[in-house]
Simulated scan of single mutants.
Amino acid sequence: MTPTPTIVVPIEVMAGPTVSDALAEFVAPLPVLVLGVVEIPDQTSSTQAREQFEEGASRTIETVAEGFAAAGADVDTRLSFTHDANETVERVVADLERAVVLFPAPATEIEDVVVAVRSDATVPAAASTVAALTQGDESAITVYHAALEDEGNDEIDRILSAVETALEDAGIDPDRLTRTVERADTPIDALVAAANDHDLLVVGETEPRLRDHILGETHERIATGAAAPVLVVRRPAVE
Rank of each mutant, 00 (worst) to 15 (best):
E66A: 15
E109D: 07
P208I: 07
L201S: 02
S80Y: 05
A223R: 05
V100I: 13
I61P: 02
Q43P: 00
D185C: 00
D175I: 06
G225C: 08
Q43Y: 15
L148P: 00
D212I: 04
T178A: 14
A107D: 04
I159Y: 02
V19F: 10
V123H: 10
L23V: 07
A237P: 00
A162Y: 01
A194G: 02
P17A: 14
L177E: 05
L200I: 12
E97A: 12
R211L: 14
N86W: 02
V114A: 07
S128R: 12
P208C: 04
V34C: 11
A94M: 09
P236A: 11
I172Q: 07
V34G: 10
Q48L: 14
I159E: 09
S161Q: 09
Q135Y: 02
A146Q: 03
I172M: 03
E39V: 05
N153V: 09
L201C: 03
R183W: 07
F53S: 07
V181E: 11
V163N: 03
E182C: 01
E239V: 14
A71E: 11
G56M: 11
P10W: 12
P174I: 08
D185I: 01
L191E: 03
H219N: 15
H83E: 13
G16Q: 13
V75Q: 11
V113W: 01
A73N: 12
L23C: 04
E90W: 04
F103E: 07
P124G: 02
N86R: 12
L177P: 02
I188M: 06
I40K: 10
G136N: 08
S45G: 13
T63D: 13
V32S: 05
T224E: 12
L200R: 05
A71V: 08
A170T: 05
D74C: 01
A125F: 10
G216E: 03
T47H: 12
P17F: 10
I159V: 14
V202P: 01
A131Q: 05
A107G: 01
G136Y: 05
T47G: 04
S20C: 04
T47R: 14
V233Q: 09
H145I: 05
G16P: 11
A15Q: 15
E39H: 03
P174F: 11
I141N: 01
A162C: 00
P29C: 10
T218C: 01
I214R: 01
A147H: 03
R59H: 11
E51L: 14
L177D: 00
D21W: 01
D42T: 13
V181Q: 00
Y144L: 09
A107F: 08
F68K: 09
V203E: 00
A227C: 01
R78Q: 14
A228D: 02
P174V: 04
A125E: 11
Q135A: 14
L231Q: 05
A126Q: 06
E55A: 15
S128F: 06
T6F: 08
A170E: 11
F26K: 11
P124F: 11
E66H: 13
E155A: 13
P10M: 06
V32D: 08
